[in-house]
């Protein structure tokens, strides 16, 4: 049973326009058992220091095999094990969208996925977009032309999100584009040029 006389509370607050867990209030009443959190921490001696798994994943059409710890996030696997640093890490708890990649064609937060979960799956990162080193993907070209980025930190996540969005909905309205962008934070542009870029891709297509 999951601690009926104990509850753990996440207080949602927002200091940076983001959803974040800030305050944990542990409410205990009539405690006959210690808090769940402490119980779990007391169990740490039983946890292996490193729980290693050998996985094979296809990234941008190329197969990679690595032995990694189960606690490694997919974002860190892509960046540190594979050296594909185009995937950016922003918040690491699923708010900012910078780490978005395609996991079996679907945009996914790579910071909310474990690297072991990529075993046998197909991933695509921003490095897989461009047709060649000299020819951008039409989506990248549209961002270039509409000035759809300033610092560029959020751009890889937005490109991967929009690639799948346009594949499913090739002729979106502006409202649909804004809705589809809701899971990606950009602190530079105010989004207008990003929306323009995505709509320009539509116009060409």
């Amino acid at each position: 049973m999951l601690c009926k006389d104990f509850s753990l509370r996440f207080e949602m607050t927002d200091v940076t326009q983001k959803r974040c867990f800030v305050l944990f209030v542990i409410k205990m009443s009539q405690t006959t058992c210690p808090p769940k959190l402490l119980q779990i921490q007391n169990l740490k001696s039983k946890i292996p220091m490193s729980d290693l798994h050998t996985i094979t994943a296809t990234v941008n059409g190329k197969s990679y095999t690595r032995t990694i710890e189960s606690r490694m996030l997919l974002s860190d696997f892509i960046r540190h094990e594979l050296g594909l640093t185009g995937t950016h890490v922003g918040c690491e708890y699923g708010v900012c969208g910078a780490c978005t990649i395609l996991y079996d064609n679907h945009p996914t937060r790579s910071c909310l996925t474990l690297a072991v979960q990529a075993n046998g799956h197909r991933l695509e990162t921003v490095e897989g977009l461009a047709v060649s080193p000299t020819q951008l993907h039409p989506l990248q070209q549209a961002f270039h032309e509409a000035h759809g980025l300033q610092c560029g930190y959020c751009t890889p996540g937005i490109l991967m999100t929009m690639k799948a969005f346009l594949a499913e909905n090739p002729h979106p309205s502006e409202a649909e584009v804004r809705e589809a962008l809701s899971g990606n934070l950009c602190r530079c542009t105010g989004y207008q040029h990003i929306v323009d870029a995505v709509l320009n891709v539509k116009d060409e297509g």
């Binding site: 867990f21 959190l37 779990i40 740490k44 996030l73 708890y93 910071c111 996925t113």
Partner: peptide, 17 residues
């Protein structure tokens, strides 16, 4: 799906064995 559990683990609020 891990979309609530993994952020809680990243923040070390949840530390399942």
């Amino acid at each position: 799906g891990g979309q609530s559990l993994v952020p809680a683990m990243n923040l070390r609020v949840a530390q399942p064995a």
